[in-house]
């Protein structure tokens, strides 16, 4: 199954945000929901099970100057096996302008047994743009070993590299469950907060050596990285402080 979706947001000139484009196709459907204050909130509504190996899903997000967008998903996505030797892909491209804010806070990706999935994110934030970006991965459904999953996140800030990380789990990733990578934790993830109004926070390790707060080299950005015994604990570690939807 192939699907593409687009979300384009602009400032409405009255301090708010308007969606000038919002379209998707099954299983990548987008729904705007009412928001308390400036900015818009959009949910990605999964229109089918999956992704299944062989699926190719693409989402393009553009947030123009002065606009603010928050994106959630209604449920975890469960990467499942599909056609033999095929890989499922989910590619999110996002462009965030100066003075714009994008908060990408989806539900977890679950790598089910036998899956072959690649989740790619390519994000470009202009100088003066703000970003929260969460990636969460649960290795297998309850009591099962995961298939192969790669969560690959590339973020540029002001045209310079800010974050490149690719987490691989499953039979094709040597040592992934071992003490150098996840130490047997079935859930892992990271939350990147890039906020031009706040300097990066100093490094700190919490939660008994399972969560680290890491100031990045390439901008006013902090990465929280975590391993956890379950999805619920992981979410507690990777919930951003309530960020204002509009930076202006």
């Amino acid at each position: 199954m192939r699907a593409a979706a687009r979300l384009v947001a602009r400032a409405d000139g009255r301090g708010g945000t308007t969606l000038v484009e919002l379209r998707g196709e099954t299983p990548l459907l987008l729904r705007q929901v009412p928001t308390r204050r400036g900015g818009v909130t959009v949910y990605v509504v999964g229109g089918a099970a999956g992704p299944l190996a062989g699926d190719d899903l693409r989402l393009h997000i553009e947030v123009g100057a002065g606009a603010a967008v928050r994106v959630h998903t209604v449920a975890a996505s469960v990467a499942l096996p599909g056609r033999p030797d095929a890989t499922s892909r989910m590619l999110v491209r996002a462009v965030v302008a100066a003075g714009a804010a994008l908060h990408w806070l989806p539900e977890q990706l679950v790598a089910a047994a036998g899956c072959a999935h690649v989740a790619e994110s390519r994000i470009s934030v202009a100088d003066g743009g703000a970003l929260s970006w969460r990636d969460e991965l649960v290795c297998g459904r309850y009591g099962e070993e995961p298939g192969d999953a790669v969560v690959d996140t590339v973020v540029d800030h002001g045209g310079r590299p800010l974050l490149r990380q690719s987490l691989a789990v499953g039979p094709d990733a040597p040592g992934w469950a071992g003490p150098a990578v996840l130490g047997g934790a079935p859930a892992t993830g990271s939350l990147l907060v890039l906020d031009p109004s706040r300097p990066a926070e100093p490094p700190l390790v919490t939660a008994g050596g399972t969560v680290a707060r890491l100031p990045l080299a390439g901008g006013p950005a902090t990465l929280w990285t975590a391993t956890a015994p379950d999805a619920h604990t992981l979410r507690r570690h990777l919930t951003p402080p309530e960020a204002p939807l509009a930076t202006a």
Partner: peptide
């Protein structure tokens, strides 16, 4: 930008 970027959460945590 496409060079490998294989991450290891515990490497970061252990180092800090």
């Amino acid at each position: 930008e496409d060079l490998p970027a294989v991450a290891a959460p515990l490497a970061d945590i252990h180092a800090e």
